[in-house]
Amino acid sequence: MNHTLHPAHIQHQLEQMRQENLLLRTRLQDILEQAHRNQNIMERHQHFDLKIIGASHFEELISHIFSALAITSELDMVTLILLDARTDLQKMLADLRIDLSSFPHLHFIRHSKELQIHSLPLLKPVLGPYQDLHHARLFRCCHKKPRSVAVIPLLRQNKLIGYLNLGSLQADRFQHSMATDFIERLGSIIAICLENVLNNERLVYIGLTDPLTQVSNRRYVEQRMLEEIARARRQNYSIACMYLDIDYFKNINDQCGHQGGDDVLCEVARRIKAELRLSDTLGRFGGEEFVVLLINTSLHDAALVAERIRRSIASSPFALTDGGQCKTSISIGLTVVGLQENFGDANHVAREMLARADHALYAAKHGGRNRVCYQ
């Protein structure tokens, strides 16, 4: 029997082998390229992890989340929602002079139900197509609507602290069927980093806050004075300083007890703060004395603010914890440091400014109290 293969058949087999070999090479090349891409992606995410883990301040961490994460994960949109039931977090950040308006993709809510997402509170990431009904509020700050989204709950010790929301203009980027292990890991790392920086900020806040009245303490006000004196020089504006002292405070302690005195101190601080801007600084200097710094303010405008404060204190009685009431007033010394006085050593300028406000307060006290005097 003749088993000799026809040359044409041999040629066909060789061509088939060449095609299979070419296909294998192509597949191998694809696998190598995908491995290389995966390696790059892994390196980028490791770099991102190191960035956010190394962040020690709230602003630094939030900046990394909105900028570095979008680049690292090739996302079109990243937003962050934080739960702040009593607005304590926002108040603390505001008191620390953290400008939340510079982060338009960051929002605070008082309860997770405000987001109107089905099955809230979420305990696992939810991936899928964008739906106005469920996702509009998550991405309301974005110029475009995403086509697919990943909503990642941020959990610490089984407690929901917020949501990280990722959006893509690609409809197939996030799908229900996708595994969520990597996204859950991302959420865990960001939740831990958020808790860490917020605890750091709270430590700073506690160290710079009067524990009774919850306004700034003397150390913080003195620090702010130096900062504002330097800024006023750079930006060519005046700053005003008020020294305030509650009138006859010893009588309040004697008649209403120390708890009554504490009640009055807290309410006085609240009424003063209500008349100030976010950029201004209020601090308790000790006892019944407070100091206020008014930024970019003329003597005329500062006097109007001081008079509003004086009227606010004197106009209505103070409710006490024991159910009683008491009335009091406040004396205010006011001074302004203009451009012509703001030169030389900043510490000297701060001491002179405070001394002038103190002298004006002395004049208000000796002029009959419950009044504003200028120097």
Score class of each variant (00 low, 15 high):
R140D: 13
L164C: 05
Y163C: 01
E114W: 00
L106H: 15
L96V: 11
L160G: 08
R137A: 06
F103Q: 06
H105T: 06
H143P: 12
N158Y: 06
E114R: 01
S119G: 13
H135E: 12
L122Q: 10
P153V: 14
H118V: 11
C142G: 13
R110F: 01
H107L: 01
Y163V: 00
Q131K: 15
R140E: 09
L160E: 04
P153C: 07
H134S: 14
V149W: 03
G162E: 00
L115M: 11
R137E: 14
Q131L: 06
H111E: 09
H143K: 12
H134N: 08
S101C: 06
L138I: 11
L100C: 06
Q131Y: 09
S148G: 04
L123A: 09
R97W: 08
I109S: 02
L115A: 06
Q157N: 11
P125W: 03
L138V: 02
L138E: 02
I161P: 02
S112I: 00
P129H: 08
H107R: 05
L133N: 13
L138K: 01
L154R: 03
Q116Y: 09
V149A: 11
R110T: 11
H107W: 00
I109T: 07
R97D: 15
Q157M: 07
H135Q: 07
H111I: 01
K124H: 13
Q157V: 14
K145M: 13
P146W: 03
L155S: 07
P153L: 10
G128N: 05
I117M: 09
N165S: 14
L120K: 01
N158H: 12
S148I: 11
H111R: 09
S112P: 03
L106P: 02
A150Y: 02
D132V: 15
R147M: 15
L166Y: 00
S148C: 15
H111C: 05
L160Y: 06
L120V: 15
L122N: 06
I109A: 02
K145P: 04
L138F: 14
I152P: 00
R147H: 05
F108K: 00
I161W: 06
R156Y: 13
H107K: 04
N158G: 08
I98V: 12
K145Y: 15
L133Q: 05
F139N: 02
H118I: 14
L106N: 09
S102C: 15
P125F: 07
Q157G: 05
K145N: 14
G128Q: 05
L122E: 09
L120M: 14
L123D: 15
L154A: 07
K124E: 07
R140V: 12
H118M: 14
H135M: 12
V151Y: 01
H134Q: 11
F108Q: 01
L106Y: 05
I109W: 01
H135F: 09
L127C: 10
P146H: 03
